[in-house]
Amino acid sequence: MSGNGNAAATAEENSPKMRVIRVGTRKSQLARIQTDSVVATLKASYPGLQFEIIAMSTTGDKILDTALSKIGEKSLFTKELEHALEKNEVDLVVHSLKDLPTVLPPGFTIGAICKRENPHDAVVFHPKFVGKTLETLPEKSVVGTSSLRRAAQLQRKFPHLEFRSIRGNLNTRLRKLDEQQEFSAIILATAGLQRMGWHNRVGQILHPEECMYAVGQGALGVEVRAKDQDILDLVGVLHDPETLLRCIAERAFLRHLEGGCSVPVAVHTAMKDGQLYLTGGVWSLDGSDSIQETMQATIHVPAQHEDGPEDDPQLVGITARNIPRGPQLAAQNLGISLANLLLSKGAKNILDVARQLNDAH
């Protein structure tokens, strides 16, 4: 009898209710805020589980004197976190989706994509230029951005401005803007500013005609071990179906173009009346040469937790077992079709030249 009692006690200790789920994140304040929001949602869904947040620095956090596009290494903000995932030191990792490459290392998958916040870019102005827009900034004003995508589009749109690289986390960039006289304004992701509670610093939100956004911008991705079915089931509740389908289309477009950090590629997606609209573009580094096109596809946005595919093969690095396969494939095909259209119009040449120029500098 006593033996059975011990077995029952052991089973209770090993039951999922007692389990601590370890969540990996970057150390920056924004990353911690984003991770806290994901953990809060998981806690609400699984009140019996405990969650421990483990923060670590990544290569991208450490190399702050070089433009991201020049470092010449993929997975700048993800490699150390993936290493911890691989060694079973954490069970899942919360990322900004735009930091996750469209091809993940073997053994990993994006197990959830959370509801997207505003994906557009924002302009934050130096205190002396508050009330201005990019259009009304004085001639030769210097605007800071760490992104080739932003610089290429904005140089084309605002030729009277000069664009220079600015690195560091959000706090560091804002301090550089406010305390030094080098920059009249800087460009940042609206979602990051909003998550930090800095709505009052948003001086201008850039519309798609001015600057399309990065693939996955404004959404959070939760990376897990691809074979860890328990954790895949656990994080599945975080999937937002519309965000998922938009981001599958965007990531398929980028992957098929073979774009990345070192080339200016941008997108804009919208879901309306059962249609998914995808606009994508590529630019030369100075913005003088560009190709942009829009395509659409009829896609039914499923309700969360309709029964999805059981075999769960990944699409552009994403596993969404609780979302039907048909809409996911339709979104992926839309991204591939748009990429093929741009490639047929000469996108590869623009991107190759951009890559060579970026590598040469």
Rank of each mutant, 00 (worst) to 15 (best):
V20Q: 12
T25G: 05
R26Y: 01
R26F: 01
R26Q: 01
R32K: 08
T35N: 04
D36S: 12
D36E: 11
S37C: 11
T41R: 11
P47N: 13
P47C: 06
Q50L: 13
F51W: 10
E52R: 12
E52N: 04
I54T: 09
I54S: 07
I54R: 09
M56R: 08
T58D: 04
T58A: 09
T59Q: 13
G60I: 01
G60Y: 01
L64E: 01
L64P: 12
L64A: 15
T66P: 12
S69A: 08
S69P: 12
I71S: 09
I71D: 07
E73D: 15
F77H: 01
E80I: 09
E80L: 06
L81W: 09
L81Q: 01
L81N: 01
H83D: 12
H83C: 13
A84T: 11
A84E: 07
K87C: 12
N88R: 11
N88V: 06
E89Y: 13
D91Q: 06
D91S: 09
L92D: 01
V93C: 08
V94R: 01
H95K: 01
K98C: 05
P101F: 06
V103S: 10
P105R: 10
P106G: 09
T109F: 04
I110V: 10
G111T: 03
G111N: 01
R116T: 04
R116H: 04
R116W: 04
E117R: 07
N118C: 13
N118V: 12
H120S: 12
H120F: 15
V123L: 11
V124D: 01
F125E: 07
F125I: 13
H126Y: 06
P127F: 10
P127D: 06
K128W: 11
K128Q: 06
F129Y: 13
T133N: 14
E135Q: 14
P138R: 09
E139Y: 12
S141W: 06
V142M: 10
V143H: 03
V143D: 04
V143I: 13
L148E: 05
R150E: 01
R150V: 06
Q153I: 03
Q153K: 04
L154K: 05
Q155K: 13
Q155C: 13
Q155I: 15
F158G: 08
L161V: 07
E162H: 06
F163M: 11
F163Y: 10
I166N: 08
R167F: 05
R167T: 12
G168W: 01
G168R: 01
N169I: 04
L170P: 01
N171Q: 12
R173T: 01
R173Y: 01
L174T: 07
R175N: 11
R175E: 06
K176F: 13
K176G: 07
Q181H: 09
E182V: 15
E182A: 13
F183L: 14
L188W: 01
L188R: 01
A189C: 10
A189Y: 01
A189H: 01
T190W: 14
A191P: 01
G192D: 04
Q194I: 01
Q194F: 01
M196A: 12
W198L: 12
W198N: 12
W198P: 06
V202G: 10
Q204M: 01
H207D: 05
H207A: 14
E209H: 09
C211E: 01
C211K: 01
M212A: 01
Y213C: 07
A214E: 05
V215C: 15
G216W: 01
Q217H: 06
A219S: 09
A219P: 01
L220T: 11
E223S: 03
V224R: 03
R225I: 05
A226H: 12
D228Q: 15
Q229I: 05
I231M: 13
I231K: 05
L232S: 04
D233M: 07
D233R: 08
L234Y: 01
G236V: 04
G236Y: 01
L244H: 03
L244C: 12
L244A: 04
L245R: 03
R246A: 14
R246C: 05
C247R: 01
E250D: 15
E250G: 01
E250Y: 01
R251P: 05
F253R: 01
F253Y: 13
E258F: 06
G260R: 01
G260C: 15
V263E: 13
V267A: 05
M271Y: 15
D273F: 01
G274L: 09
Y277K: 04
T279S: 10
T279A: 13
G281N: 01
G281M: 01
D289V: 13
D289K: 04
S290Y: 12
S290A: 01
S290E: 15
Q292D: 10
Q296Y: 10
Q296N: 12
A297E: 05
T298A: 08
I299A: 11
I299K: 05
H300T: 14
H305F: 01
D307H: 15
P309H: 10
D311V: 11
D311S: 05
P313F: 01
P313T: 07
Q314N: 14
Q314V: 11
L315D: 04
V316L: 13
T319P: 05
T319N: 05
I323V: 11
P324F: 01
G326V: 10
P327T: 07
Q328M: 15
A330M: 01
A331P: 01
L334R: 01
G335Y: 01
N340Y: 11
L341P: 04
S344V: 06
N349P: 10
N349M: 11
V353K: 01
V353F: 01
R355D: 15
D359K: 04
